[in-house]
Amino acid sequence: MDNKRRKFLKIAGLSAVAGIGAPAALNMLMKGNVQASSSHGHGDDHGGGHEEAKGHGAHQKEVKLGKRYGMVIDVHKFNHTPGLVQKCIDACHDTFNVPDIGNKKDEVKWIWEEPFAHAFPEHSHYKKNTELHHLSFLVTCNHCDSPPCVRACPTQATFKNEDGIVMMDFHRCIGCRFCMAACPYGSRSFNWRDPRGMKDGKPFIKKVNPEFPTRMRGVVEKCNFCAGRLKKGLLPKCVEATGDTKAMVFGDLNDPNSEVSKVLKSRFTIQRKPALGTKPSVFYII
């Protein structure tokens, strides 16, 4: 290879490397700083991120400013109304086009039932009251105040809204499943195969709801606390399904006058895995 050609190739190679690297570096300089201080993405630089950072320093204090949606689930009320658990699950899964793949391995679920031992594995199950073991606990995304999944996501495809809801951007998700490893509640599902597909002539999504997008394979999904419905002043689908049983109470945890705050003040509730510092926004009356 003659000298000129080698030189040319070297320069060409270097400029190619620089060309690939430069936009990223620039992007980082311009956006990175802003986003490093607020832990949620999509240009959403509301106070929440700073609050969260403060929360870390101040020994796990909960965020007091701004909205933070949360929910209380009264397990006994569910138990006294047969079929209510399934009604909630169906209401959610039908609304959000959650596919029923039909096997455990590829399963996608946003809200589902678990026995006490599995919803609260870190609690002792020794000589627990027998009723407890027959109860069904609805479990879903906890919309943690300090969500490990958001911390783990390399693209901000999962991020925390200003109202505390942990959201998913299905179009940005690269499907690395780091968030699934990070979630201590197993709340996240991956589309191992095309959810729009079918098996034996039966589509995975029985009836598509045109108001919410179906997903493509290779992205992660989970409960979104019905963020879209909340914007319209509606309650989440599962809460709506419980009707006036009060089995689920939903509202702003940071508003002392909200119904959910009043219930939390007056009743003993537990959260799932509170020791991990994720600060779940879903509470249980058992």
Binding site: A24, N27, R151, T155, Q156, I174, C176, V219
Partner: peptide
């Protein structure tokens, strides 16, 4: 799951990840 989007890691740099 979406290899075609791999560059999102560069396009949306996320130092906390």
């Amino acid at each position: 799951g979406q290899p075609m989007r791999a560059l999102n890691v560069v396009l949306h740099p996320t130092p906390h990840s």
